[in-house]
Amino acid sequence: MLRKRVITVLTFNDGVLFRTKVFQPDYRYTLNFVDAWSVDEIVVLDITRPGAGKKENFFSVVSDFAERCFVPLTAGGGVRDIEDFRKLLCLGADKVAINYQALNRPEFISEAARLFGSQCVLVSIDTRENGSGNYEVYSEFGTRPTGLDPVSWAKKAQELGAGEIMITSIEKDGSLEGYDNRLNRLVADAVDIPVIACGGAGKWQDFVDGFLIGKVQAGATTNIYHFTENSIKSAKQYLKKSGVEVRG
């Protein structure tokens, strides 16, 4: 039986691990993936603002992770064309996350899927709730409303060849209040491809709720307290006790 996945999302600013509350770089998290972690997958995202750093610094992060972690690796952030996409794959990423350029030029999804296969193409969707219970897709680090509804956008991304959707609730990001499972469920029910929930997980029960209520295939955490080897292991134990089938 296919297991539910627990994914660690790490964000990098100019090649430095970036935390939303504490700005100090800390590389101990990049060590010992093989030996100690039971994280199922790793996503590394470049969140360097345009002009504020060198691409090469993020490239060396991707390359470093590809050499050290023997689990699937997704890389993304600032991917604008096929050459950017290819570059990350060549550095050792298994999948590439796209967001801005997929919204800007949806046929980019198809071009990437045709060249590298759908399994490589992760479309990341950032959303906000507009106060009346409706959701809207936002672009450019959550600053630009697009007028799109995340359910129709996810369906369109799937039709165009996306292999996976990562859905982030901007309001929940960093809140530790749990995922927005109404949003997750709406998207997960609308597409056949796997959906990754992102933004808001603060305790192990939040993962359980994401799987059982949000119906997602994978729960992602960007929370620093979920990063160490013991915490992922204890998350897995909690999930198993709660009836969610995960890898040990």
Binding site: M1, L2, R5, S118
Partner: peptide, 11 residues
């Protein structure tokens, strides 16, 4: 009733 491709950790 299962999505194809089959992606993830399995037995």
């Amino acid at each position: 009733g299962l999505p194809v491709p089959h992606v993830g950790w399995n037995d």
